[in-house]
């Protein structure tokens, strides 16, 4: 049996289409990532799976339980961590954890082994009110609360948004270790670099799935030559690169521009083109594509259709 099965789900809020025809399956024990920018429909999809929203059309099931008719069964076995920090700010760390343990009919002691690695990091502050924790610690507490009843499946809605780089890294290590215990994890994130940490990912854009595969396969499907181009004036560089006749696409990527091309060309040719436009300190390096390049490529293709 699949952990998650989604058939042709549609969801819209008044005029806005949040999800248009999502089909997806997640295997048991997978660490599955929903990757996409804000407004892609990740939160809506997770809420539908967590039995918090009705889809307009289509149906979904978690371990065979229907999210609409058998939601009570799902609520017993699922852990959910909303995108916005939503624990009780006026209760202490320990009180929050105790509360969530007892409403699921368990105790901290019973499942301590499951949260030990995470909880140990915040345990020194267990008397502190949850509202006074730092962003990273809040997320760790929220994850502990979502885990305390030993769920079979865990829904995490953008758990690393607004968290510093070190805490993000720690958080993903925790997710990896939970996968070892056999918990199926569905995690959404707008950070493309985190996609590579998942077993499989679904790339989402405007309520549609662009692709669903392992990160390696997605990168393997990339069919352009890719270069990182730099010069002194980044903004003008993008514009000028888009007028170059061999360019398929040019997107900013940190301090550089990622240039995708269809035909091979000699680097001097581009160098000359850019110097002609008045650019200085030009560097052109061939690079391997990452998930973000693949995402941009898929997105462009969908828009062209």
């Amino acid at each position: 049996m699949k952990a998650v099965e989604i058939h042709n789900i549609y969801k819209s809020y008044k005029e806005v289409k949040a999800l248009s025809g999502i089909n997806l399956q997640v295997k048991k024990g997978e660490l599955f990532g929903l990757i996409g920018p804000d407004g892609a429909g990740k939160t809506s999809l997770i809420r539908i799976l967590a039995t918090l929203l009705y889809p307009d059309e289509g149906q979904a099931s978690i371990f065979g339980w229907d999210t609409i008719d058998e939601f009570r069964e799902i609520r017993k076995i699922a852990g959910y961590m909303p995108g916005r920090f939503s624990l009780y700010q006026d209760l202490s760390v320990e009180e929050n954890l105790n509360f969530y343990a007892s409403i699921f009919g368990t105790t901290i002691k019973e499942n301590y082994h499951l949260i030990k690695d995470i909880y140990q990091q915040i345990e020194p502050f267990k008397k502190r009110l949850a509202g006074r924790l730092s962003g990273g610690m809040k997320q760790k507490l929220a994850l502990s609360c979502a885990l305390i009843h030993k769920p079979d499946i865990l829904f995490l809605d953008e758990p690393t948004t607004g968290v510093d780089a070190v805490s993000r890294k720690e958080f993903w290590e925790i997710l990896k270790s939970l996968e070892q215990v056999g918990i199926t994890i569905i995690v959404s994130t707008p950070y493309m670099d985190e996609a590579e940490l998942c077993d499989r990912v679904a790339l989402m854009q405007q309520g549609r799935l662009l692709d669903v595969d392992t990160p390696a396969n997605i990168i393997g499907k990339y069919d352009h030559d890719l270069y990182a181009v730099e010069s002194k004036t980044l903004h003008r560089l993008i514009k000028d690169l888009r007028t170059f006749d061999k360019t398929t696409s040019a997107f900013p990527f940190g301090d550089t521009v990622h240039l995708a091309t269809n035909e091979t060309f000699r680097r001097q040719e581009l160098d000359k083109f850019l110097s002609g436009k008045g650019h200085e300190n030009i560097t052109i390096k061939p690079i391997e594509p990452g998930i973000e390049d693949c995402f941009m490529n898929l997105m462009r293709r969908q828009n062209d259709q």
Binding site: A50, T51, L52, R72, R75, K76, A78, Y80, P82, R84, F85, S86, L87, Y88, Q89, Y100, I103, F104, G105, C145
Partner: peptide, 13 residues
């Protein structure tokens, strides 16, 4: 308002 209702709803309460 604070979103904690989401957590209560997904619990067996």
């Amino acid at each position: 308002e604070l979103g904690t209702m989401e957590n209560l709803l997904v619990s067996p309460l």
